[in-house]
């Protein structure tokens, strides 16, 4: 395989590729942010909610986590329109990924909160903190530290899962790459190149996670 023609093509499609990469990044970012916010609510409901709410959320997380992401993406795009919610592919895709993300974050947070010894809450209570204050100043900081490594993993999974949006026609990195290949017939180098870009993005996420982890580790 010669590198010259590939580099030549690459230079020609650089903006198209960049746009695809940007779309991948923005899909992932939106899904992670929205999914995490939603996931925090899910996690709180799973941990502290009244019993019916807890059951409801348990059903939600178990159902979502048991469903392939591709099915969520397709359902979000094709099924929501049948109930009158008209989303474009981008919106539908982000929604599906965010929902997927929320079920994982919710479950992670529940696990982290429940892993905190009961003595922590009690110590907070006996110095007069209300539940609300105990959560903010005592439980959440510990739970977040605990969740962080897994959360970074989930974020990286979101980037990978964003490729599934190509199926419903969102021009993210994978679909853009495929379109370029269908014009240039250089499948191998462009797939490799796309793979490398995904790797860079996820490597960046991982490094960022490690950095935050280092910054927030409790000395002992």
């Amino acid at each position: 395989m010669e590198l010259g023609p590939f580099l030549n093509e690459l230079w020609i499609v650089r903006y198209i590729l960049l746009e695809g990469l940007w779309r991948t990044v923005s899909i992932s970012l939106l899904a992670i942010v929205a999914g995490s916010l939603l996931g925090v609510l899910v996690g709180l409901a799973l941990t502290y909610g009244a019993l019916p709410l807890r059951w409801l959320m348990r059903g939600y997380t178990d159902f979502i986590r048991g469903t392939p992401v591709l099915v969520l993406v397709l359902a979000s795009y094709y099924m929501l329109s049948t109930i009158g919610l008209q989303l474009n592919p981008f919106e539908a895709g982000v929604l599906a990924l965010a929902v997927f993300c929320s079920s994982h974050v919710g479950e992670m947070l529940r696990g982290a909160l429940q892993a905190i010894p009961r003595g922590q809450t009690e110590a907070a209570k006996v110095i007069g903190l209300t539940f609300h204050q105990a959560f903010i100043y005592v439980l959440a900081p510990q739970a977040i530290r605990h969740v962080l490594p897994t959360w970074v993993n989930t974020a990286a999974e979101m980037v990978k899962a964003s490729t599934l949006l190509s199926i419903i026609g969102v021009g993210e990195l994978l679909l853009t790459t495929q379109e370029i290949i269908s014009r240039t017939f250089m499948s191998l180098p462009f797939y490799f190149f796309a793979g490398a870009l995904y790797f860079v993005v996820n490597y960046g996420i991982e490094r960022f996670g490690k950095y935050v982890e280092r910054r927030t580790t409790i000395p002992s």
């Binding site: 006996v126 903190l129 209300t130």
Partner: peptide
């Protein structure tokens, strides 16, 4: 109740300091 808890202070067997 939170206010009344301030009437007393408590030390536990397991210390229960906030580790963070």
């Amino acid at each position: 109740i939170a206010r009344q808890r301030l009437l007393t202070g408590m030390a536990f067997q397991q210390f229960n300091l906030f580790p963070h």
